[in-house]
Simulated scan of single mutants.
Amino acid sequence: MKYLIILFFGIWVSCNSVNAQKDTNGHSKHPSLYILGTIQDGGSPHIGCQKSCCEGLFKNPDPTRKVVSLGVVDHRNQKSYLFEATPDLPSQLKLLKERSNLNQEVPDGIFITHAHIGHYTGLMYLGRESLGSKRVPVYAMPKMKRFLETNGPWSQLVKLNNISIQSIQNEKTIQLTQDLSVIPFTVSHRDEYSETVGFKIIGPNKSVLFIPDIDKWSKWEKDILNEIKAVDLAFLDATFFDGPEINSRNIAEIPHPFVVESIELLKDLPQVEKSKVYFIHFNHTNPLLDTTSPAYKIVIDSGFNMATFGSRFKL
């Protein structure tokens, strides 16, 4: 009997080792997308906030409340990329390093959507006061590129070769590896210092739409319904759930599609299309940050999803 137990245990270990190897190989053959942050630019808790949504977080911070960012890893070609350089860049880069299993502290490229504080200011950590990096590729549209090159302290990053700005163009494909490409596209937003883009991220098996910031879907020359149908996953602007949520600010100063508006606009999509949608870029006041809230239930019951920190999607 003892020998049968030993034999069985040996077979069990062998089978599980094979399965683990298969999982590892499968992981290495397919690019992966990781959610490294889901919060709007100002973070959560938010500076100056006296509401209940922030009160407890100032005393007990939630480590998952990081500003919106995606990490993409091409495991087979041993490359990693970051989408957005947020104020949470140090911890997000460390997480990307862990997920990529690569021995490098910085990615092979950083893609920037626009010049609002939650999307580019993390570049400061690459400078001489911090990492002192060497020629990290930063992919930027023409106005964004010019903004970084001609305004301090960002221009110092260029001058000291901490970053190397890679020019990108609207609707022009960037081939990163044989398995991974990216297409930037302009969207309507508050373009005080730069244009604003979203990105289509294309892997060998799946494609992703990433639009963390846009004014209103009606202001975009494209039809968001058709754009969702053309991809496998869509991470869309969900800054505010509805109007009453921001009664202390002028909405004209911070236009975004309310989640309730997006739900109404997308309500007639087949469920297979709705399930592609993951809302992201939540303001600190957004009730969707509370998974027990009625708002959260409305989104889920309507057939949509919420982006969650740390999630992985195979590309």
Rank of each mutant, 00 (worst) to 15 (best):
Ser130Tyr: 15
Ser130Arg: 14
Ser130Trp: 14
Leu131Glu: 05
Leu131Met: 13
Leu131Trp: 08
Leu131Gln: 04
Leu131Ile: 12
Leu131Cys: 05
Leu131Tyr: 06
Leu131Lys: 07
Gly132His: 09
Gly132Ser: 14
Gly132Lys: 11
Gly132Tyr: 07
Ser133Gly: 05
Ser133Lys: 01
Ser133Leu: 06
Ser133Asn: 04
Ser133His: 00
Ser133Arg: 03
Ser133Tyr: 00
Lys134Arg: 14
Lys134Ile: 07
Lys134Val: 13
Arg135Asn: 08
Arg135Asp: 10
Val136Glu: 02
Pro137Val: 02
Pro137Phe: 04
Pro137Glu: 01
Pro137Gln: 05
Val138Asp: 00
Val138Pro: 04
Val138Ser: 05
Tyr139Met: 05
Tyr139Asn: 07
Tyr139Pro: 00
Ala140Gly: 01
Ala140Thr: 02
Met141Glu: 12
Met141Ser: 08
Pro142Trp: 05
Pro142Leu: 04
Pro142Gln: 04
Pro142Ser: 08
Lys143Asn: 15
Lys143Tyr: 12
Lys143Glu: 15
Lys143Asp: 14
Lys143Gln: 15
Lys143Arg: 15
Met144Lys: 03
Met144Ile: 06
Met144Val: 08
Met144Trp: 06
Met144Cys: 04
Met144Glu: 06
Met144Pro: 03
Lys145Asn: 08
Arg146Met: 13
Arg146Glu: 14
Arg146Val: 08
Phe147Arg: 11
Phe147Val: 09
Phe147Tyr: 15
Leu148Asn: 02
Leu148Thr: 02
Glu149Thr: 10
Glu149Gly: 08
Glu149Asn: 08
Glu149Tyr: 09
Thr150Ser: 15
Asn151Gln: 13
Asn151Lys: 15
Asn151Ile: 15
Asn151Glu: 07
Asn151Ala: 11
Gly152Thr: 14
Gly152Asp: 13
Pro153His: 09
Pro153Cys: 10
Pro153Gln: 10
Pro153Gly: 11
Trp154Thr: 05
Trp154His: 09
Ser155Phe: 09
Ser155Lys: 12
Ser155Ile: 08
Ser155Val: 10
Gln156Thr: 12
Gln156Val: 11
Gln156Pro: 01
Leu157Asn: 05
Val158Glu: 00
Val158Ser: 03
Val158Phe: 00
Val158Leu: 01
Val158Ala: 02
Val158Tyr: 00
Val158Arg: 00
Val158Cys: 03
Val158Gln: 01
Lys159Arg: 09
Lys159Tyr: 10
Lys159Asn: 10
Lys159Ser: 13
Leu160Gly: 14
Leu160Trp: 04
Leu160Thr: 05
Asn161Trp: 08
Asn161His: 10
Asn161Leu: 07
Asn162Glu: 03
Asn162Cys: 04
Ile163Asp: 02
Ile163Leu: 00
Ile163Arg: 04
Ile163Ser: 02
Ser164Gly: 01
Ile165Pro: 04
Ile165Met: 03
Gln166Asn: 11
Gln166Glu: 09
Ser167Met: 13
Ser167Cys: 07
Ser167Ala: 13
Ser167Val: 08
Ile168Asn: 01
Gln169Phe: 15
Gln169Trp: 14
Gln169Pro: 11
Gln169Val: 14
Gln169Ser: 15
